[in-house]
Structures are given as C-alpha cells and as structure tokens.
Design a binder for these strands. Structure first.
Lengths: 192, 192
DNA sequence: GCTCGATTCTAGCACTGCTAGACAATCGAG
DNA sequence: CTCGATTGTCTAGCAGTGCTAGAATCGAGC
C-alpha cells in the first residue's frame, strides 16, 4: 500500500504546485496571463495534467480563492487582536482588509471578482470563505449598534470596503485619499 | 459636399448600431458572448468593419460605458428631483443607483468593472463620466457633514453602493436584504 | 523479463481578437 | 462616357485561448 500512498502524496504535492504557480503567475502578470499552456509549462507538465486535478481553469481560480480566504482571515485576526478597544479594532480591520486587497490583487480577484465556481452566502459555502466572513464579523458585530443585525451590518461594512478596494485598484478612485475614506467609513458606519 | 455628408451620417449611424448591438448582446448573454464575429454578424457586416470604427473590443466597451453613464446620470437626477428633503433624496439616489446596476448589469460592468480604456478621476475624464459623478455629488454633497469634503464623501458613499451592487450580483451577498443594507448605509453615512 | 493498467503526452477541435491583402464600388478628370 | 485613383469592404489567415480524444509511455506486480 505504500506505493499508492506515495503516489497520492506526490499527486497532492503536484496539485499544490499547480495552485501556487497559478497564483504566482496571476500576481506577476494578471489572471489573463494565466493560460493553461503557460501554467502547464511552468509546472513542467503538459496541459491535460491540469485537467486530471481540476475540471478547468475556473476550479483553479477557486482553489486560489480558498487559499487566499484562509490567509485573509488570518491577516484580519492578526490585525484586530493587536488592537485595543472596539474602535481601534475596526480601524485595524479596515486597514488590514484594504492592505490585503492591495498586496494580493490577483488573490483578491479570485475571491471576489472572478468566477471560481464557489458558493457564497449558502450553507454549502466552503469553510475558508465562511471563516473569512467570521473574522470580519468578530470585530464588526460589536459595533453594529442596537437593533441592527450583526450579520447584516458586517455585510454592509464589507461591501463598502470591497467597493473602496475595487474602485481604487481599477483607478476609478484616486489612490491618495484612501486613508481618509477609510476613516470616514469607520467613523460613520460603526456605532462607538 | 452633400454626398460626403450623407456618407458621414451613414457612418455615424452604423457606429451607433455597433454600440447598441454590443450592448444588447451583452445584456442578453453577457460580455463574454460579445465576440467580434457575433457582433459583426448581427450588424450584418464583416469583422474588419468594426475596426474601422473602434480600435478594438475595448473601445466598444468604452463606448457602451459612456452611453450608460449618460443614462445613469439622468436616472439619478430623475429619482432625486422627485424627492423632498436631503434624506429622501439620498435614499432615492441610493435606490436608483442600485436599481440601475441591477437592470443594466452589462452596462454597469462596462462602466465600472471592465476595462473600456477610459480615464477616471482625471482632468481628461470623458464628460459623461464626470457628469454621472456630479449627479451623485449633487445629492450627497449636502449631507457630507461639517468638515468633510463633499467630493471625498461622495467617493466613499459611491464605493459603498458599488460594493453592494457588485457583491450582490456576484452572489456574494444574499439578494433579499438589499433594501435593509441600503437603509443602513443611508442612515449611518449621511449626516441628516 | 513481461504484461497490463495507470499515467502522461501529442495532436487536434472550435473558438477568440485582430489584420494583410484581394476585391469591388464609387468618384473626379478628361 | 470612359478610365484611373481612391474608398470601402470582404475573404482568408495568424497566433492565441480552453479543453479533450486517443496514442504512447511508464512502472508495479507477477
């Protein structure tokens, strides 16, 4: 049985390689540059190998999105746990979110802009995505205000952050005022 | 000279046809379905004709975006002018914005999600885009609050609306609570 | 050392955006 | 009214895309 186990390990290793390479390529040159040919060449296998791991390009994007969600959740929790008091936590959360989006644009796109074939806002939403939302909820729930559902508040705050992140990167908003817009958002939306 | 004028008119007419057809096709089947071949077939000309009007597909998207911006500006002004008082105006504005995004998803994408080769937040931003932002500013500037720059406030509010619009359509947010999220946004962000 | 199933590759499909060069229609000059 | 030049349009093709059928190769177990 040890041979099969080794093969399975190697297969899992190669799958990680595919996802990591796709992510790297996407961050370097954008998702448009992540073609099955280029990806195959970089991992030093032929194209069809990709299809023995994933149904198609969409699923590869989805895998990158899941990886990113786990990282984002960790980054958000790290930022908030270092802050004292609700206000500092929310500010740190907002900054950490926008920072993650700016530093990992391709991963961010995989999560929230592209179609990775993942279910959102469902019971069958993958765990990492639920957890990333939970990380938002942990800090935002406490400042939702009386009579406002924490989940609903979190969704709204998240949407606002998402709007800032995407419009800024798409050069629809001038980048220099990001900090002031973030402060405005925190000051007004959170009940402190 | 009249012959040349007629030709010019016909050429302009055909250009409108291209833009209208691209928009129609995008709304019906999504932008992915708007290929140069399909578009050419629908307007009953060959592909190269498209390139005698536009540099490429990107510019066609840009043309749809400009058309959409003019319409959105009109829709926003129509909604706000029918409302009494700042609060009602902002609520009407937010609803009209999200309604436009939901009813014209392809046009909305052309404006804010896709690359139409247009300049934003610049002095050389096309007039319709500036005017759409101006339409937002007209109603939002009056509720920015003391010491908050109206433009900055408008950008922030707009980003929040954009986040709601895109995340909802990408099925990242459950659609049924849209109205409540909108109310929350208006209640908290606007200084009334 | 050989066989046979699993794995991987080559080669190909139908599609994409875009363009060079052939062709036809139209115009102005003689 | 004819003829060359200028437009305008089309056919055919390039290099690329995601994806897959079937051939070729590898290696595990006898």
């Amino acid at each position: 049985m040890s041979v099969q186990e080794r093969k399975q390990r190697e297969r899992a290793e190669r799958e990680r390689l595919i996802v990591a390479t796709a992510r790297e390529l996407a961050e370097q040159q954008g998702w448009d540059a992540v073609t099955t040919r280029r990806l195959a060449e970089r991992i030093e296998y032929s194209q069809p190998v990709l299809y023995s791991h994933f149904r198609g390009k969409r699923e590869i994007i989805g895998a990158v999105a899941l990886e990113g969600a786990a990282e984002m959740a960790a980054a958000l929790r790290a930022a908030t746990s270092a802050a004292d008091g609700p206000r500092a936590r929310v500010t740190a959360l907002a900054r950490a979110y926008l920072d993650f989006a700016e530093r990992n644009p391709a991963v961010y796109d995989a999560m929230f802009r592209l179609d990775g074939g993942l279910a959102f806002a469902h019971e069958d939403t993958p765990e990492p995505l639920k957890d990333a939302f939970a990380a938002l909820l942990e800090s935002l729930g406490e400042v939702a205000g009386d009579g406002v559902h924490p989940g609903l508040f979190t969704e709204t705050f998240w949407a606002a952050l998402h709007g800032l992140a995407t419009l800024t990167r798409a050069r629809r908003l001038p980048p220099e005022d990001t900090e002031r817009r973030t402060e405005l958002l925190v000051d007004r939306l959170a009940m402190l």
